[in-house]
């Protein structure tokens, strides 16, 4: 127990590898700014607004990636009861909510000059992503409500899976409902992008993925340290209770 205590005292979420990774991400963001603002050409129709693609598309991609990790972690918690997976699910959800918020924000900022509106209820991806955002905010609210560690993990895992299984249904319902879309087809697959734009977009995705990995490692380590801290507190509490038993004033005096 003492070992854990000292290791927590000296605890940090930093390591050589994450430091290097952090610098790579920083450098990558710098490169993305240069490429996105100066190298990539402006669009014939959308003019400069098209540059939003370099943040928006990677964010959207990472949103779904992060929430998939949450769903996987939730499933693994329910199956294996491993704290490791529980913390992975929680970490990915927190980071995913940030990406999701960024996706919605950049999307609506981009929408203003191109569609002439910040928000469009008729768009499948917008509305689906918004509902996913709300569900995951609920997931974090549930986690924040607290309780016994295992109970919190189980509740959160069920909500994580509930969000995952409902996303296809939500997507379908919005698609039928709107039956029209302002949203352009998938930017990557329709082949209309200029070479340099495509290259910048790929750089953007790579940088975002690296950032996700970097943030996940740090967030996971925080979660793990919190878990260890709770364990130390628990051991101390158990030791305290046992001391009560040992010092029992009535010890043996009752019939």
């Amino acid at each position: 127990m003492k070992n854990i205590a000292t290791s927590v005292d000296a605890a940090t979420t930093k390591s050589r590898a994450t430091q290097i990774l952090g610098f790579v991400v920083l450098f990558g963001v710098l490169a993305l700014i240069l490429l996105g603002f100066f190298a990539a050409p402006e669009d014939d129709e959308q003019r400069d607004a098209v540059r939003m693609i370099f943040v928006h598309v990677p964010s959207a991609f990472l949103t779904y990636a992060a929430f998939s990790v949450t769903a996987a972690g939730s499933l693994m918690w329910l199956w294996k009861r491993s704290r490791w997976w529980d913390i992975v699910a929680h970490s990915a959800a927190e980071i995913g909510v940030i990406f999701c918020g960024l996706t919605l924000f950049t999307g609506s900022v981009w929408g203003r000059p191109t569609w002439n509106t910040y928000w469009d209820w008729g768009d499948v991806r917008l509305v689906t992503t918004l509902i996913l955002f709300l569900m995951m905010v609920g997931y974090l609210a549930l986690r924040a409500a607290g309780g016994e560690e295992n109970a919190v993990a189980t509740r959160a895992a069920v909500v994580g899976l509930l969000a995952a299984v409902n996303i296809p249904i939500i997507n379908r319902s919005v698609e039928w409902w709107a039956n029209r879309t302002l949203h352009q087809r998938s930017s990557l697959t329709d082949g209309n992008l200029e070479d340099l734009t495509l290259f910048t977009l790929v750089v953007g995705i790579v940088v975002w993925v690296l950032f996700f990995v970097w943030a996940m490692i740090h967030r996971f380590r925080i979660g793990w340290l919190e878990h260890q801290l709770r364990d130390i507190e628990l051991q101390a509490a158990i030791a305290g209770r046992r001391a009560e038993t040992a010092n029992d004033p009535t010890g043996g005096s009752l019939p």
């Binding site: 569900m135 609920g138 609210a141 549930l142 509930l162 939500i170 319902s173």
Partner: peptide, 28 residues
């Protein structure tokens, strides 16, 4: 979701936050 929030202290606020987004496709 009712069983899920049954032992949460803040269940009265957490339940609608969780339930209403899930029911969005039902509404539509």
């Amino acid at each position: 979701l009712g069983a899920l929030v049954a032992n949460v202290a803040a269940r009265d606020t957490v339940l609608p936050i969780l339930l209403l987004p899930v029911l969005a496709p039902v509404l539509i």
